[in-house]
Protein backbone atom coordinates (compact mmCIF):
# COMPACT_ATOMS: atom_id res chain seq x y z
CA UNK A 1 0.00 0.00 0.00
CA UNK A 2 1.39 3.42 -0.84
CA UNK A 3 1.38 6.30 1.57
CA UNK A 4 -1.53 8.62 1.25
CA UNK A 5 -2.15 12.05 2.69
CA UNK A 6 -2.71 12.09 6.41
CA UNK A 7 -6.51 12.10 6.32
CA UNK A 8 -6.61 9.23 3.85
CA UNK A 9 -4.16 7.35 6.03
CA UNK A 10 -6.31 7.95 9.12
CA UNK A 11 -9.35 6.58 7.28
CA UNK A 12 -7.39 3.55 6.07
CA UNK A 13 -6.15 2.84 9.59
CA UNK A 14 -9.62 3.33 11.08
CA UNK A 15 -10.90 0.76 8.58
CA UNK A 16 -8.18 -1.64 9.66
CA UNK A 17 -9.12 -1.16 13.32
CA UNK A 18 -12.76 -1.89 12.48
CA UNK A 19 -11.83 -5.00 10.52
CA UNK A 20 -9.52 -6.51 13.13
CA UNK A 21 -11.92 -5.72 15.96
CA UNK A 22 -14.59 -7.76 14.19
CA UNK A 23 -17.42 -5.36 14.77
CA UNK A 24 -16.47 -4.19 18.26
CA UNK A 25 -15.86 -0.71 16.87
CA UNK A 26 -16.64 0.91 13.54
CA UNK A 27 -14.31 3.05 11.45
CA UNK A 28 -16.60 6.01 12.08
CA UNK A 29 -16.33 5.57 15.85
CA UNK A 30 -12.56 5.36 15.62
CA UNK A 31 -12.36 8.57 13.60
CA UNK A 32 -14.88 10.50 15.66
CA UNK A 33 -13.91 9.49 19.18
CA UNK A 34 -11.56 11.67 21.24
CA UNK A 35 -10.89 8.64 23.47
CA UNK A 36 -8.01 6.14 23.19
CA UNK A 37 -8.68 3.01 21.14
CA UNK A 38 -8.65 0.92 24.32
CA UNK A 39 -11.56 2.96 25.67
CA UNK A 40 -13.54 2.06 22.56
CA UNK A 41 -13.14 -1.64 23.27
CA UNK A 42 -9.96 -2.37 21.34
CA UNK A 43 -8.42 -5.24 23.28
CA UNK A 44 -4.78 -6.27 23.43
CA UNK A 45 -5.52 -9.08 20.95
CA UNK A 46 -7.06 -6.57 18.57
CA UNK A 47 -3.97 -4.39 19.01
CA UNK A 48 -1.75 -7.28 17.97
CA UNK A 49 -3.98 -8.02 14.96
CA UNK A 50 -3.78 -4.34 14.05
CA UNK A 51 0.02 -4.41 14.24
CA UNK A 52 0.05 -7.45 11.95
CA UNK A 53 -2.26 -5.72 9.49
CA UNK A 54 -0.21 -2.49 9.51
CA UNK A 55 3.04 -4.36 8.94
CA UNK A 56 1.63 -6.25 5.98
CA UNK A 57 -0.15 -3.25 4.46
CA UNK A 58 2.72 -0.76 4.70
CA UNK A 59 5.71 -3.08 4.64
CA UNK A 60 7.11 -1.81 7.93
CA UNK A 61 8.29 -3.51 11.11
CA UNK A 62 6.47 -2.20 14.13
CA UNK A 63 8.89 -1.89 17.03
CA UNK A 64 7.29 -3.17 20.21
CA UNK A 65 10.35 -2.71 22.37
CA UNK A 66 9.88 1.03 22.62
CA UNK A 67 7.02 3.20 23.79
CA UNK A 68 3.67 1.72 22.73
CA UNK A 69 1.68 4.94 23.04
CA UNK A 70 1.55 5.21 19.25
CA UNK A 71 -1.18 2.57 19.49
CA UNK A 72 -3.35 4.85 21.61
CA UNK A 73 -5.29 6.40 18.74
CA UNK A 74 -5.50 6.58 15.01
CA UNK A 75 -3.67 9.94 14.85
CA UNK A 76 -0.60 8.70 16.68
CA UNK A 77 -0.69 5.50 14.64
CA UNK A 78 -0.85 7.51 11.40
CA UNK A 79 2.16 9.56 12.50
CA UNK A 80 4.02 6.37 13.38
CA UNK A 81 3.31 4.78 10.00
CA UNK A 82 4.23 7.95 8.04
CA UNK A 83 7.53 8.20 9.90
CA UNK A 84 8.51 4.65 8.99
CA UNK A 85 6.94 3.84 5.65
CA UNK A 86 8.81 4.55 2.44
CA UNK A 87 7.47 7.68 0.65
Amino acid sequence: MTLQDRDDLRRTLAGMVAEVSEGEVTAEQVLASPHPLAALGVTSITQIRLIDAVEVAFGIDVDLDGDLRFLDNVDSLADYVRARAAP
Binding site: S44, I45, Q47, I48, I51, L64, D65, L68
Partner: peptide, 11 residues
Protein backbone atom coordinates in the same frame (compact mmCIF):
# COMPACT_ATOMS: atom_id res chain seq x y z
CA UNK B 1 2.37 -6.15 32.73
CA UNK B 2 -0.15 -5.17 30.07
CA UNK B 3 2.61 -3.82 27.84
CA UNK B 4 4.92 -6.76 28.53
CA UNK B 5 2.20 -9.28 27.73
CA UNK B 6 1.21 -7.54 24.51
CA UNK B 7 4.83 -7.72 23.38
CA UNK B 8 5.22 -11.32 24.44
CA UNK B 9 1.95 -12.40 22.79
CA UNK B 10 3.04 -10.71 19.59
CA UNK B 11 6.17 -12.85 19.61
Amino acid sequence: SGTAITRAARF
